[in-house]
């Protein structure tokens, strides 16, 4: 375990860059809506990574900005409904095929945001459970159980200071035991059947984390 004590927490950019660094060369990857999308900006040239978007494309390129080489096309969007581009070698397919390749274990990595992750890898990221909230799951449950490896990106603590790495999720679950790794501003964790283990810390120590989290932490 590496404790980086001579610095502060990771910025959003640094976090995205560290996730990108851990994606294997040539992997087929789905990046969830929101912060995970920014991982694409940090994939090195020649990474060979092929991006999947669940609305029916492999080989998704950067966002379209309406220039001569990246025209805005309402028929070409990502899962967040934002116009994107297609890279050479891209392919299109319908929704049942798109989720079959996900559920069938053909995607190598999926990166998702989360409200909470449990030490054993349960994920809560679709619904706050508040009575007046309109539930909307999208592809979150399919993604959570489909990819070979699931990475979560989040802050370790909510705005009210409560920890988001928890013994058991209190928000409604998206998937059970599906998360492999959790990248946060202050630490990276491995989670799973053996519980949580700290891989790296940023501007905080292992002992600080032990004191602030309600879960046993390996190192």
């Amino acid at each position: 375990m590496n404790e980086h004590l001579d610095r502060g927490p990771r910025s959003k950019d640094e976090l995205a860059a560290d996730v990108a660094r851990d994606i294997p060369h040539g992997a087929f990857v789905n990046l969830g809506i929101g912060q995970p999308t920014t991982v694409a900006d940090h994939l090195p040239v020649g990474s060979g990574v092929v991006l999947h978007t669940e609305n029916g494309m492999l080989g998704m390129g950067p966002l379209a900005h309406g220039g001569p080489h990246d025209p805005i096309d309402p028929d070409l969007t990502n899962a967040g409904k934002v116009p994107v581009t297609a890279l050479p070698g891209a392919s299109y397919f319908h929704h049942a095929d798109s989720f079959a390749m996900m559920r069938g274990g053909h995607l190598d990595v999926c990166v998702l945001g989360a409200f909470q992750v449990s030490a054993t890898g349960d994920l809560a990221n679709w619904h706050t459970g508040e009575p007046d909230a309109i539930p909307a799951v999208g592809g979150a449950m399919d993604l959570a159980i489909g990819a070979k490896q699931v990475f979560v990106m989040m802050t370790l603590f909510a705005k009210d200071g409560s920890a988001k790495l928890v013994p058991g999720c209190t928000y409604p679950l998206t998937g059970v035991g599906c998360v492999d790794r959790v990248y946060t501003d202050v630490a990276t964790f491995e989670v799973g059947p053996q519980g949580a283990r700290v891989l790296e810390t940023f501007g905080t120590s292992y002992d600080d984390l032990l004191a602030r989290l309600d879960v046993p932490l390996g190192r």
């Binding site: 929704h95 079959a100 559920r103 799951v137 999208g138 449950m141 399919d142 159980i145 679950l173 998937g175």
Partner: peptide
């Protein structure tokens, strides 16, 4: 869930009476 929405319609079109799917296990859905 989005994949179930697609697959449930696929099943209807393919003459499948029902199917077992891992999506959503252990969740409120």
């Amino acid at each position: 869930p989005q994949g179930n929405l697609a697959e449930r319609m696929r099943a209807a079109g393919a003459g499948i009476g029902a199917f077992f799917c891992p999506t959503g296990v252990g969740t409120p859905l």
